[in-house]
Design a protein around this nucleic acid. Sequence first.
DNA 1: CTGACTTTGGACAGCGCTGCCAAGCGAGCG
DNA 2: CGCTCGCTTGGCAGCGCTGTCCAAAGTCAG
Lengths: 336, 336
Amino acid sequence: MSSRPTIKEVSKIAGVSFKTVSRVLNNEKHVSDETRRRVEEVVAQLNFRPSHAARTLAGRRSFQVALLYDNPSPYYVFHIQAGALERCHELGYRLLMQPVESAARDLVPDVLALVDEAHLDGLILSPPLTEMPELLEALDKRKLPYVRIAPGLRKDHGLATTMDDVAAAREITRHLIDLGHRHIAFIRGPESHVSSADRLAGYRQELEAHGIAFDPALVIAGDYSFQSGGAAARALFAREPRPTAIFAGNDDMAAGALAAAHEADIAVPDSLSIAGFDDSDLARAVWPPLTTIRQPVRELAYAAADLMLAGNAVTPQVMLDHELKVRATTGPAPKG
Amino acid sequence: MSSRPTIKEVSKIAGVSFKTVSRVLNNEKHVSDETRRRVEEVVAQLNFRPSHAARTLAGRRSFQVALLYDNPSPYYVFHIQAGALERCHELGYRLLMQPVESAARDLVPDVLALVDEAHLDGLILSPPLTEMPELLEALDKRKLPYVRIAPGLRKDHGLATTMDDVAAAREITRHLIDLGHRHIAFIRGPESHVSSADRLAGYRQELEAHGIAFDPALVIAGDYSFQSGGAAARALFAREPRPTAIFAGNDDMAAGALAAAHEADIAVPDSLSIAGFDDSDLARAVWPPLTTIRQPVRELAYAAADLMLAGNAVTPQVMLDHELKVRATTGPAPKG
DNA sequence: CTGACTTTGGACAGCGCTGCCAAGCGAGCG
DNA sequence: CGCTCGCTTGGCAGCGCTGTCCAAAGTCAG
């Protein structure tokens, strides 16, 4: 490994003290324009970057945050990562991607150990880690800044970026009702995610707003996986009368239901409408393409990083817009 | 931010010098079992982790590597990340996920700056960054260790983990030939990826091994995206006679072709067989489920990290097995 | 019992920066 | 004209570890 330049070499070439170079690098004031220009020139010429480790050790900040996740969906992780990474990069921060097991006994001490080891300046939490009181309390106690991504609508405490899952679920349910559907089933996600409870609530509210009785038997539990969507759909197909529409709590389960429909030779959307949630890559890759809700995953993560690193205290919570994407898996209810 | 414990506090409680604690933490010898035990006890009790920044600054190593990627596929990135992260974690290393633009003019200096800034101990390269001579040369010159993931079969230089793309492509082509297909089209990936050239070569070799003439008109260029697979398939559908099978260079393009077939009302697999490559999440989510090659993405990345951080010099290249997954998009060629 | 060697643990410098304090210097003011 | 003030710059300690060197204690053969 050939040796890297240090701040001292830069200062020598620029003809100033190394402390002055440090000032320029940190954008402090009290440096004359002339000096600043000269130093920046040398920095560019040497392609110099200050040692992150040294800054962390000497300073009060590490310019380093971690994104904690426990999510099996490549689509979701990829996009929150992309959004958070982008904003962190813009602000000169480094992002550590940290998979964790939310069910692990040692979750809290392990996270705190990571915080110590890396001198983290903050933490970005994604579901279901956003819903773990012990974790949040430990971070509060440590006075460690954190943001939560999409933790549902409760205006409780701390920084958060979110979307309106309830309203979105109402919207897509209304779309189904407008198409004439009256027997609409719902495949819900795992209990540990607030989003799945919110989506269920939206589904229910919209039904009732239209005078359609909520039927608990039409709600089947899934776990956000493709498999579980197929299983739920098959259970639904066995019912008499068969529902004319299925609203799945996410796209994976909707794709599972769609595959099950194909397998059972049920025409979509002619005999059965299917709607998903997320607008993941899957939504456009299956046939017919899925009607779904676009969830602004990337933007949520971007905003989360922004809130924590550059945010002002007056707007601790940010809500982003969703969008109904009507594609080809939903159509008019078959004449009964 | 409440204060973290330091190595000195640990040493005070354990009743040894702080240098001895350092020895225990680094698993050095010349520490008695009794002392080691006592120190480890205190470390566990305080949930102490040494400051990564301080170790990096003081020592010769940073226990930190980066994984460079420039790939739009969530599936691919998620799995290489998971594999590399796992092995790094096991070995006590930290992994920085670093998206880059392989076409950027400043790619090489930017990477070198990152190496300096983070004092990186090594780099993991994924396609297409594995194929950039300027980058590899710069790293060699810097004497910076790196591994390349799946750079095709050429036994050139340095550490690499790979799979046999040529053999895998032959295998799936043979599967199609065995089903009676004689007009087999190929949708190829982008030029910048060796894998797409290798897969094309395998397709061609197997055809010729069975005395089927290679027809360049049956090879359509795609770019590994769903869109491009659909476009290629539509071009193929316009040909007379229509090919009875399509082998796409990856699953995304195969899914695009499948959707195009549905759209054109061509029965799969009865009138048209489709095969993909990768066995990504998509392969099981579309209908019918895709016949494809399972590419050991996660394992490739795991092995790459292992090779670089724990490997021995005698096996600089590791080749992992693929597997033909016959599912439902391939069937006997229709009687002509 | 002695000298040479091994095992064990401590002292100290220094990694490359930032935080704090002080010095230099010209301008403004009574 | 002396003094203070504000801007700019430099000096120095020290962040929490590792590497190197050295001292003390234990081990063994002759």
